[in-house]
Amino acid sequence: MTTAISLEGVVKTFGSTQALDGLDLEVRTGEVHAYLGPNGAGKSVTIRILLGLIRQDRGRVELLGGDPWRDAVALHRRLAYVPGDVSLWPNLSGGEIIDYFARLRGDLDTRRRDDLIERFELDPRKRASTYSKGNRQKVALVTALSSSAELIILDEPTSGLDPLMETIFQDCIREMASEGRTILLSSHILAEVEKLCDRVTIIRQGRAVQSGTLSDLRTTTRTSMTVSTDEPITGLEDLEGVHSFRRDVDHVHFEVDDPAIAEVMRHLAGLGIRSLVSRPPTLEELFLREYGDEPVDG
């Protein structure tokens, strides 16, 4: 397994603001890697370092086997980028901008481009000044997705898209992943990441707080359960590994550490289970646990 992106102990400071504080990040070749974090965590700064637009103060950065600062031009032939806040030339049409970027990369596949324009329902003749945020984002997406780049870096690419377009975006990402391309997808939209990604890195205040596959992350956490039984449930709250136990009129809710699930099921089995709903933790819950009681945008 080779590595497409690797950062070790990266530090970046702007004036008195510590944007990255010893960040580690590893993206393997051919995977869809989610880069999750709240606003201001340092996601965009990381991406700007990967693009060679800014240089880290300390730490080691490697991108596609090169140094993103020193080898910027050569590396950029092999990657495509979708910025989070898409700003376009107001007098140019969307079609002109898409073609311009394709030519800058020397990589214009008109069939693929036309297909994407159709799927995203973009009017390429409109001037960029008249595009909405979502349409500007579509221009950037068509630009990046119509390329044959081996690495695609997307910075919160769907924040302006409607749910229908988001589905199309997810299809496109799956297609690209099936072609063996590497995708780094930064986001704070957890549901989107859950459906698409092989592995996840969670960043907070300039540091990676967790990294691994989704199931890796989940084993370290709990499962939520809602149960109702014929016999009254007693003693469950005293079991090892059961948390947040709460009793309703005819249901009980609790969370259970995954290693303790078997013991809980044995306890419930004798009580005549009428219904049982069990749900793996969402990334929201992972997030909340990571960030504790602090507000998510802190």
Partner: peptide, 10 residues
Amino acid sequence: GRASPVLATP
């Protein structure tokens, strides 16, 4: 913000 996407190309 129009320089970054251009400078992210070769």
